[in-house]
């Protein structure tokens, strides 16, 4: 049986066409495997390049953001400083009219915010400032003359500095008088200013609306014990700023603000 089985089986051969078909299939499989390997190499190369590109982009992006943020912060600080400077300049020009009228007093001051008075004040203020600049011009001319004649320019510059220092001293005297007038001797510093538009701090999420004496005060903390509030009376807006040791919360500030408002605005008791 064994020999018979061997003999019968050895007569069987793989068909030629099957062998050809199989060889063709093998060649196609070899090509497919080669293509896959090439694709894998390309993918690895691409991933490496993308990683490098991304890391490069990431490096650039990392530095750009803090620099941009710093530049923006510097711009905002400058703008804020300018705005604060303008506010103080406006306030000083408004209060200078009272001083010029001779009503500065520690016992109690009535503030008038008439538009015409404000214009006079600003004119007076401008005149004062012009005087300072005129003095300076004179000094400059003298300096030029002295230089031509061989005089000491430093000496003349010192005298110009002295003139501006004297003007500053006058201003500080005015400030202290104003402060004492505003305080009324209570230890808290509160000031009031008429505004045409509702200030931005009213829309801040930390701003609280407090009703007091029939008025709506929009109160926000500036910093520490410094507060600011906005109130509208007869369609006229006022911003009251200030604070002090005694003013530790919004309600206390609103009380002080109302007192100042009553002193300043007609029709409020």
């Amino acid at each position: 049986m064994i020999d018979q089985y061997k003999k019968e089986t050895s007569q069987i051969h793989a068909p030629a066409d099957l062998i050809l078909k199989t060889k063709q299939a093998v060649r196609e499989e070899e090509k497919r495997i080669e293509w896959e390997r090439a694709q894998q190499k390309q993918n690895v190369y691409r991933q490496t390049m993308v990683r490098q590109t991304k890391s490069g982009y990431g490096k650039t992006y990392k530095w750009a953001l803090p620099v941009a943020a710093a530049v923006l912060f510097a711009i905002m600080m400058n703008v804020s400083t300018m705005m604060i400077g303008n506010k103080f300049a406006n306030f000083q020009s408004n209060t200078a009219s009272d001083m010029a009228a001779g009503e500065a007093d520690t016992g109690g001051v009535e503030y008038e915010f008439a538009a015409e008075a404000a214009e006079e004040e600003s004119v007076d203020m401008d005149a004062g400032m012009d005087k300072v600049f005129a003095d300076k011009d004179l000094l400059t001319e003298s300096a030029a003359t002295a230089e031509e004649e061989g005089a000491d320019y430093d000496m003349l510059e010192d005298s110009a500095d002295d003139a501006s220092a004297a003007a500053a001293e006058d201003d500080s005297i005015q400030d202290s008088v104003e402060e004492s007038a505003m305080n009324g001797g209570s230890g808290a510093e509160v000031s009031i200013m008429e505004v045409e538009e509702i200030p931005d701090f009213c829309e801040d999420k930390n701003t609280e609306c407090i009703a007091s004496h029939g008025l709506q005060f929009y109160v926000a903390r500036e910093w520490g014990n410094k507060w600011q509030a906005y109130v509208s009376v007869d369609e006229v807006g006022y911003v009251i700023t200030g604070g002090g040791e005694g003013i530790t919360d919004r309600e206390l500030f609103v009380e002080k603000a109302y007192e100042l408002l009553a002193e300043t605005v007609e029709g409020i008791e």
Binding site: M1, Q4, Y5, E8, T9, I12, H13, A14, P15
Partner: peptide
């Protein structure tokens, strides 16, 4: 049954032992 010379699947009467296997 394959007609070509290379053979193929055999008929039972030609390969009885294989057919039995």
């Amino acid at each position: 049954r394959m007609a070509d010379e290379s053979g193929g699947y055999e008929m039972p009467e030609e390969h009885p032992v294989r057919a039995a296997v």
